[in-house]
Amino acid sequence: MFDVLDFGAKGDGVTDDTKAFEAAWATACKVRGSVMVVPAEFEFLVGPISFSGPYCQPNIIFQLDGMIIAPTNAKYWGSGLLWWIEFSKLQGITIRGSGVIEGRGSVWWTNNEPDELSLVLPKIKPTALRFYGSYNVTVSGITIQNSQQCHLKFDNCETVQVYNMTIASPGNSLNTDGIHLQNSRDVMIHHTNMSCGDDCVSIQTGCSNINIHSVTCGPGHGISIGGLGRDNSKACVSNITVRDVNLHSTMTGVRIKTWQGGSGLVQNIRFSNIRVTEVQTPIMIDQFYCDRSSCKNQTSAVALSGIVYENIKGSYTVKPVHFACSDASPCSDITLTQVELQPLQEHYHMYEPFCWQTYGELYTPTLPPIACLQNGKPTSNHILSDLDLC
């Protein structure tokens, strides 16, 4: 066991403990199954840091019981960094404990002046905790709060477990996704509470075999696949299960969003046992996603097929269902079972269910009736080209 206090960390919340953390990691990295300890009842000020392989021994445990706080002084961040705390190219890395990663993100969200008025924080905001190129990753027990941008990101990782943890930021904190997945597979996220200012879980291209269950989300933007296909890129997402989820006061519930002009395929998606409370739009597919003032119309699209919605119940405040699919590549094999969504109050400006180029089947009557879903398969469904195959 390697305690950061033994490597010179002060844990007073003021002294820069980055070098002590680096020294503790350099030693732990050499020992298979070692434990790097961040003890309880201390606050460690740590600047941008990377705990990296690939030459570390496997199965290292990062035992976080104290608090790690981010610097708000702009001099730490240079012209902008993509992450604050990173673990990269490791085999078997576990972060566990009852501690807190505190991003102190409010100075980034609101453009408040940082500690030194002469220095301005960079426009590029860091992700609080990022895992890159790692296998057999576990995160449990800890809290990540007030991230500068995304809270927890997995990029190019395989065999990941996240459970019994908390992610917490205000609903008005810009772009603070809870958990962001890209180019990762075999991921299990469960028994986790997320409140943030963007998607609670964001699933991007290159993801497959993702299982999310027993989580709560709110405030936030819901659980989203995408946006996919930005800047005419190819996107491939498959075998995603989201079940036994509670969403409250979120913008959307379960959403798939793609940009016009993309290619690729989203398939075999299941949303099951979803409870929504005061959610603006509980079920959404948006193949015309655009986060700018305008986006040009393009014909190609990421193809969507094999999407199951079952046992989705609760209250909405704007529209129960919104299916906006591409003209050139309609959504196919969309099935709904036991969907019961009630308007929260009649005085809201309510909209009826909306469907465009959406084909599939209602296995049970829905509330409200989704009469706009077209039965069967699209007649002119375009043949998938090599560009679309994943």
Rank of each mutant, 00 (worst) to 15 (best):
K257V: 15
A303F: 00
V318K: 15
D327V: 08
G306L: 01
G306F: 01
C290N: 10
S293I: 13
Y289M: 03
L265G: 00
A235C: 04
I240W: 04
S294I: 08
P282G: 08
D333T: 04
V302G: 02
R270V: 14
T299A: 13
S315T: 15
N211H: 14
A324K: 11
G306Y: 01
V308T: 12
Q204P: 00
V254M: 14
D333F: 02
T250D: 08
S214N: 15
Q338T: 10
A328H: 12
Q298R: 15
Q204W: 02
C290K: 07
D333C: 00
H221K: 14
D327Q: 11
D286Y: 02
G227S: 15
E278F: 11
G227I: 09
T277K: 12
C295N: 07
V276H: 06
N273W: 00
L341N: 06
S315W: 05
C331K: 01
A328Q: 12
S233H: 07
N268I: 01
W259N: 09
D244F: 09
A235L: 04
A303S: 10
P330H: 03
V242D: 04
G218V: 09
H322Y: 14
S214P: 00
T277M: 07
I285P: 01
I269K: 03
V242Y: 05
T216C: 03
I223T: 09
I212V: 15
V302L: 03
C331R: 01
G262R: 07
Q204Y: 05
V245I: 15
D231Q: 14
Q287C: 10
R230V: 09
S224A: 14
M251S: 12
S300D: 14
R230Q: 13
N297Y: 13
R270Y: 05
T252R: 14
T277D: 13
V215S: 07
H213T: 10
A324F: 00
D231Y: 13
C290W: 05
P219G: 09
V308F: 12
D231I: 10
G253Y: 04
G264M: 11
N273P: 00
G229T: 05
R275E: 12
I256F: 05
I223L: 15
P282L: 08
S233R: 12
G253A: 05
N232D: 15
L228W: 03
G229N: 06
I285S: 02
C295Y: 06
T335R: 13
I210F: 08
K296P: 15
C290G: 07
G206W: 07
V276Y: 06
I212K: 08
S214R: 14
N232G: 00
I225M: 10
R270A: 11
I223G: 06
T281E: 08
P282S: 06
R292L: 12
G220S: 13
D327A: 11
C217D: 09
